[in-house]
Amino acid sequence: MDAELEFAIQPNTTGKQLFDQVVKTVGLREVWYFGLQYMDNKGFPTWLKLDKKVSAQEVRKENPLQFKFRAKFFPEDVSEELIQDITQKLFFLQVKEGILSDEVYCPPETAVLLGSYAVQAKFGDYSRETHKSGYLSSERLLPQRVLDQHKLSRDQWEERIEVWHSEHRGMLKEDAMLEYLKIAQDLEMYGINYFEIKNKKGTDLWLGVDSLGLNIYEHDDKLTPKIGFPWSEIRNISFNDKKFIIKPIDKKAPDFVFYAPRLRINKRILQLCMGNHELYMRRRKPDTIEVQQMKAQAKE
């Protein structure tokens, strides 16, 4: 997100060995959310498998091979769950990049509020002496769509954000990052993986996979789930070819079937479901020794 790291790998280096090197270098311990993503030979973003050799995976031939270190799974509640500052920082950098690059839609007034928390996270408290007018001129503050949609000048936008920045006086940089993540999470700006699906009639709908389960959305409203499948209600998920089957815990209830356009999509949906479900179950078990130690350290 904010640095480039280069590693030499051997022909039999596994994905896990490479991933472990990256997280050790970055100092990250809550590794279960993250993965290494590469573009495959067909140009599709693909997660590096940890159990296979890097050389045996279809990473597009470049020198050096390109990977992105990204969050693959997201917490249920960002303000409660993330233990270390570095974890929050990595999520913050990724979510901010997603919003500033218009990957997700962000309404203008929210964009200004989020921009002001990002400024607080970078500069700390606003002070007239150190933050002369123009101190934001080289900052990426707002999504391009917001800048294009409104006739405000760059200076006028900066002025609005400056007003909010001074409002945040006394807020720690880490807390500003967390506020940013909390607001973005409330507005569903991250954490949900959307897939286009159809019902038997062929109507286009969205399937959302997130930390709490699966949701079905109507095509014109990705923010309001119409049908929900919490992990607690699901016994099994499987697919064959284009047909996806969700089996309920309640044996008397009917299986739920939907259709996804391509086999590769089904594989991705299934992989995300397995990973999110595993984290969902892990959260409901007692903390491992390592997590207990991390929480104690973070509290200090």
Binding site: P107, E109, T110, V112, L113, K182, I183, D186, L187, E188, N199, K200, K201, T203, L205, L212, N215, I216, E218, L223, T224, P225, K226, I227, G228, F229, P230, E233, P248, D250, A253, P254, F256, F258
Partner: peptide, 30 residues
């Protein structure tokens, strides 16, 4: 205003509770 809007969103993050027959019926009728 933006904060209130964000907080209000927190409420309807989840679909309404319903049994699987209802899920089926709703989905087929979209």
């Amino acid at each position: 205003e933006a904060k209130e809007k964000a907080r209000s969103k927190r409420a309807n993050k989840r679909a309404p509770q319903m049994d699987w027959n209802k899920k089926h019926e709703l989905f087929s009728n979209f």
